[in-house]
């Protein structure tokens, strides 16, 4: 009998995600989505990706919930009424097939923490061995993100900046 926190977290994620889709009230859906993000953050932390867990907890569970709620408060009830047509036949056939296909493909993925997986034999050893001599930064993730891959990070920052500008242009009418 395999029981671990992982199973429990995945179950909670499934329940909250399904609940966010099925629930009638949009406000409850938003709150369920926030709790889903929180459980996802716990999963990231459990997998050792603490950076991602931070972002998921703050952005997914905190900021996104606030933004959704603000939008709900500012829209009239007629805009937010749920129209949920029954799923079409294509949806019922294609999506389970897609799921089966993904599960089948997931068999070929390398195991978690496998030292011989393509990702950990290509360039990661170089970063792990040299990043401290190169940059005097103990955290390899930071040195890869901000030094070796600095241009990528800059363009990501441009994307965030552009999203803020776009929201201001679309939503603020005066000033």
């Amino acid at each position: 009998m395999i029981f671990s926190y992982e199973i429990l977290l995945l179950l909670l994620m499934l329940v909250t995600a399904a609940g966010a889709i099925m629930v009638k009230d949009l406000m409850s859906a938003v709150l369920l989505l926030g709790s889903y993000s929180f459980f996802l953050a716990l999963v990231w932390a459990w997998l050792g990706a603490v950076d991602v867990a931070f972002v998921e907890a703050v952005v997914g569970a905190g900021l996104a919930t606030v933004l959704f709620l603000l939008t709900l408060f500012r829209t009239a009830p007629k805009d937010t009424r749920l129209r949920r047509p029954p799923p079409s036949l294509t949806t019922l056939i294609v999506f389970p097939l897609l799921g089966v296909l993904l599960l089948y493909a997931a068999n070929d993925l390398p195991g978690f923490g496998d030292p011989n997986s393509p990702a950990s034999v290509h360039i990661s050893p170089t970063y792990l061995q040299q990043s401290y001599q190169d940059t005097h930064t103990p955290n390899v993730v930071t040195s890869v993100l901000m030094d070796y891959r600095s241009l990528d990070t800059m363009v990501e920052t441009v994307v965030i900046f552009a999203s803020g500008i776009a929201c201001a242009l679309l939503l603020r009418r005066h000033g």
């Binding site: 900021l63 603000l70 500012r74 929201c167 201001a168 679309l170 939503l171 009418r173 005066h174």
Partner: peptide, 15 residues
């Protein structure tokens, strides 16, 4: 700044 700016955009009175 972007996070604060989006919240201010969403909660402005004109909307």
């Amino acid at each position: 700044v972007t996070a604060v700016s989006i919240v201010f955009s969403l909660s402005a009175e004109e909307i």
